[in-house]
Nucleic acid binder design. Structure first.
Length: 423
RNA sequence: GGAGAGGUGCCGGAGUGGUUUAACGGGGCGGUCUCGAAAACCGUUGUGCCGUAAGGCACCCCGGGUUCGAAUCCCGGCCUCUCCGCCA
């Protein structure tokens, strides 16, 4: 959420952001509602002031046992006026709040302007794309041959877009989770959190999934709870409506969770295998930082995520997203994409974003800079560190052998009980 | 699910229908003292909104209601705690 004052004072900038992000927010409507709101507010405030003054007078008169009938009668009328103004004001303010939630964050000045993902810019690549001397198999074939991925059973149990990992496949997934959590907690200084996999509306609104993306999420209607689409939601909301101490910043969290996405509107895309599924595992990184450091923190966040792929020996590239591909709440975002030999393309395994104070303002997460200074909103960031099925895909497809087995990267072997190969 | 208790500021914790941002304590900040520090003492310390400003308004979990006037009384909701039931 942007500050209403900021919108008022930076109309051109906000309209440009709406345009560049391909959003449809009506900024002029916001301005006119704001004007209405302010005029109602000052009218109501005047009457309330009168009420307060006269109420005090009535109290005084009662104390002196004088008759206050006339004043009471007058106030009865004023109160009625206030009531009706307040009612109108409430409607206008609710409308204002709803409108403000539809204004996207303003992209950082370093973000390339562009309409869609074709304008994303590769900032670096790492590793060599493996040159296999045989026709590489896609992961679903490998999974079937080795008996570690059973898509037909997943379809039977739940439907398309779900996975059943079995035996060494399940173990490999668990190994990856543990490997990543250990890396981030032990080497990168993140605190591990295991949050709920369901979140309420205020939380979903806090991080910016609501109101825009409601249809992309699974909703348990009886409880009005959403299955989390990412650990970003529960972990970032840990500090909703809180005032953090300046000296405790920056705060780093890492969390493993399952993630649930309806993938509405993605029908026909990546339907085979486990590239795009309704439920997947992910290790997430979340940061709460001081505003002046947030862009440095974004760079180090990306590096922390990249290290996962480096240690696994998976080649990847990092792209900075252009304005049109940038999510609603983000000010800047890097995608990390791992190369997968079987399907022959780069797969997005991480998205690292700086939200600046956009989420913090929605959540009410602030800190006091020091010495009785004014409260300020923190900056929040998060990134996958990293998402699992696609990392599994890259691993399976890049480490496959001519015989259809999969070599296990060095870094993972201790997590696999010393296993060197899945065969 | 049943019964009870409670939700107050940065934190702990009082609170009478009528000068309430709200006793008291802690913390923070400023100062006195000190070579320096601790201790002690004194002072100070909420947030948001409107307004060029002076100033004003709102806020004691959330939403309604009663009243000239509600942190205080009534109703609904959410959350926490205790006991009982159920349960991996």
């Amino acid at each position: 959420m942007l500050d209403l004052k900021f919108v008022r004072e930076n109309v051109a900038k906000v309209k440009e952001a709406v345009e560049n992000k391909n959003e449809k927010t009506d900024v002029d409507l916001i301005l006119s509602v704001d004007e209405k709101r302010r005029s109602l507010l000052s009218e109501a405030d005047k009457l309330k002031h009168q009420k307060n003054v006269v109420s005090e007078k009535i109290a005084q008169m009662k104390k002196e046992k004088r008759d206050a009938k006339e004043e009471i009668e007058k106030m009865r009328k004023v109160s009625a006026q206030i009531d009706s103004l307040d009612k109108e004001l409430k409607e206008v303010e609710e409308k204002m709040a709803d409108l403000l939630l539809t204004v996207p964050n303003v992209p950082h000045s370093s973000v390339p302007i562009g309409f869609d993902e074709d304008s994303n810019v590769v900032v670096r690549t790492w590793g060599e794309i493996p040159k296999l001397d045989f026709e590489p198999r896609p992961h679903w074939e490998l999974g079937q041959i080795l008996g570690i991925l059973d898509l037909p059973k997943a379809a039977k149990v739940s439907g398309t877009g779900f996975l059943v990992l079995t035996g060494k496949g399940a173990k490999l997934q668990r190994a990856l989770i543990n490997f990543m959590l250990d890396l981030h907690t032990q080497k990168h200084g993140y605190e591990e959190v295991l949050p709920p996999f369901m979140a309420n509306r205020p939380s979903m609104t806090g991080t910016g999934q609501l109101p825009k993306l409601e249809d992309d999420m699974y909703l348990c209607e009886r409880e009005d709870l959403f299955l989390i689409p990412t650990a970003e939601v529960p972990v970032t909301n840990l500090h909703r409506e809180e005032i953090l101490k300046a000296e405790q910043l920056p705060v780093y969290y890492t969390a493993y969770t399952a993630c649930f996405r309806r993938e509405a509107g993605a029908y026909g895309k990546d339907t085979r295998g486990m590239i795009r599924v309704h439920q997947f595992d992910k290790v997430e990184l979340v940061k709460f930082v001081k505003p002046e450091t947030s862009y440095d923190e974004l760079e180090s966040l990306v590096i922390d995520a990249e290290e996962v792929l480096q240690l696994l020996g998976l080649p990847y590239r990092v792209r900075v997203l252009c304005t049109g591909d940038l999510s609603f709440a983000a000010a800047k975002c890097y995608d990390i994409e791992a190369w997968a030999s079987g399907v022959g393309k780069y797969l997005e395994v991480s998205s690292c974003s700086n939200y600046e104070d956009f989420q913090a303002r929605r959540m009410g997460t602030r800190f006091r800079p020091k010495k009785g200074g004014k409260l300020q909103y923190v900056h929040t960031l998060n990134g996958s560190g990293v998402a699992l099925p696609r990392t599994m895909i890259a691993l399976m497809e890049n480490y496959q052998t001519k015989e259809g087995t999969i070599l296990i990267p060095e870094a993972l072997r201790s997590y696999m009980g010393g296993m060197e190969e899945i065969k």
